[in-house]
Write a protein that binds this DNA or RNA. Structure first.
Lengths: 340, 340
DNA sequence: GCTCAGTCAGGTAGCGATCCCGCACGATCC
DNA sequence: GGATCGTGCGGGATCGCTACCTGACTGAGC
């Protein structure tokens, strides 16, 4: 009796049909919202469905429709705030669109690693692949790989394209540097992220161009690797160089490292050196001093990315290409006019 | 010609059979590694497979075997270091075991949110569900939910169980507090995380018990919410209270907030107040001062969790229950003996 | 020489959906 | 009043694979 009440997902479309007194075909029409079923019939079927706790088999459905409603996500193997946030929000956007997301990580940026990730997703018959790019090499690998399904790339890139989504790193960087210039700084250093990271490249470019636009000289930038450690190493050098009154770090962690070193060497922030970061990690407001930085809207990026996926896999009307999303400069206590 | 060379995944088992000059059944035996196929035959089949770029349809396979090789992961909707790391490493462990992972997030800890997440995974026919718990309410919800497939819970918990994996938050907290006691501190404050977070509960308990074991009094702890902001608020109060010489924060972000407030109010860390955190986020070594904290091995936790999944879904020999993984105290510059 | 394991390969029946077709029925039209 | 048509529903084929059974061929044993 109680077993008959809840046959946990053991039933198929014929069981439902029998209980509702219709054919399996009619049940199929009901669950797919196909018109041509009398309301009374539809109701009987729906009742049978809930009574049996029926849910259609995605495997059987996929077999005949050749659609899995699955999207593959390739993410870098890191718990960093940026990639994690993008993955998180993309997941939610996909779920809203009633798609499943299966995630694989790339252990490194090697071609083999990317190939194996793609292969793994393809063997699961995803309908599209979304790549969160942390290394330009991954873009190259993907491009060389005839994937066979649409690939949407999430990456900072110089020019927008049909299946690329991004946040405008370049303009974000320019706004950060502009802020320093507006405060009166003339010697503005930069520590970039890994040269292989698209964000790093764009932010470096933004720094250069904004300095050039203000006719300021750009010294050789420092090269970090996103970690606070590398920022601290750069801060060491910077502490000796009293000409430089401001530094634009390519992310918040490195900004933290820079500040840490400066403070350790008796250089005060922002009185002697202004520091600005990028990302606006949640704790940035609680660094000492609170960090001026550039915020990105990852939720919007996730939604936008899913939108591009839908354009690619379904009819979905396609408005040309998607423009990079804007950033927002958050001014806090780590920037101030230079001591004159 | 070139089209015949790479029929992108359009081929099925019969195409392979025809090309290899065998029956489809023999092909099936080859791809499933079933013995009883002559090496020469096996080779011919394998060549046909690579030539056609064939890969078996998971849908067709799932339909008949009733196994999807998919695991559902329920994660909290946050990019925090802890949950993100667990998700990341679990993903990698699952991939090593040749399982796919489909992730859904719970927008909040409400029963409805959890129910809908589970429902969504179940309708995708996952073979097991893994829950990364950030709120005890989620555990209750799941328990009330007859899921129908094994559920492995990743959570700090007082007692180990068959399908629970965890890191030993309690002993981690005790080791942190012990460290402060060993340094000579007698008045050790605590700011806990949200009262609904299992980690928070266990770390609070560890703080209490370690103080009790040393016959020290535990004042009313502060209640934070994991954010640096809440740590800063607690730090405000603490700055006034000159009796307290040390504070154990339930995570690194709050420790950061505490230090930020203390410094802002002219209290020096660690000279006047020692601070210890929990998690060992990558930037903890670059806070000012570098933060003493408790490190957790998320990679091991991910692997352990996958191991429990395998025990539940396959035969896999089951060694009773899994013990909580140990933590490691990382001593840096934010802790020192109290000024006497 | 014939049987009899044992090895290898083939044929057929599903798994649970969708898709294409067709049938019954009542309303509409000439 | 019979042909036409739209609505509502049902029957069978099909997707690509595995499970089960059957059959052909080998070589050993009497």
């Amino acid at each position: 009796m109680s077993a008959a009440d809840k046959p946990l997902r053991g039933s198929n479309i014929f069981d439902v049909a029998r209980l509702a007194g219709v054919s399996h075909q009619t049940v199929s029409r009901v669950i797919n919202d196909v018109p041509g079923v009398r309301p009374a019939t539809r109701l009987r079927v729906e009742q049978a469905i809930t009574q049996l706790r029926y849910s259609p088999s995605p495997a059987a459905r996929a077999l005949v429709t050749r659609r899995t409603r699955m999207i593959g996500l390739i993410a870098p193997s890191t718990a960093d705030y940026g990639p994690s946030s993008i993955a998180l929000h993309f997941n939610e956007a996909a779920r809203d669109a009633r798609y499943g997301v299966v995630t694989v990580t790339t252990v490194d940026a090697s071609h083999e690693s990317v190939r194996s990730a793609v292969e793994s997703l393809l063997s699961q018959r995803v309908e599209a692949v979304v790549v969160i790019v942390a290394d330009v090499a991954v873009v190259e690998s993907i491009r060389s790989l005839d994937v066979g399904v649409p690939v949407v790339t999430v990456t900072a890139s110089q020019r927008p394209a049909h299946l690329i989504t991004s946040i405008d790193q370049y303009r974000g960087a320019r706004s950060a540097v502009r802020h320093l210039i507006d405060l009166g700084h003339r010697q503005i250093a930069h520590i970039s992220g890994p040269p292989s990271a698209p964000e790093s490249i764009e932010r470096l470019r933004g720094w250069r161009d904004e300095l050039a636009a203000a006719r300021l000289v750009a010294r050789e930038p420092g090269h970090g690797d996103w970690t606070a450690r590398s920022g601290a190493a750069f801060g060491e050098q910077l502490a000796q160089d009293h000409d430089t009154t401001a530094v634009f770090a390519s992310n918040d962690q490195m900004a933290l490292g820079v500040m840490s070193s400066l403070l350790a060497h008796g250089r005060r922030v922002p009185e002697q050196v202004s520091v600005v970061g990028f990302d606006d990690v949640p704790e940035a407001a609680y660094f000492s001093p609170a960090l001026t930085t550039v915020a990105q809207d990852f939720a919007a990026l996730g939604a936008l990315t899913m939108q591009r996926v839908l354009i690619a896999v379904e009819d979905a009307d396609a408005p040309g290409e998607s423009l990079p999303l804007p950033t927002r400069l958050i001014v806090r206590d780590s920037t101030a006019p230079p001591a004159s």
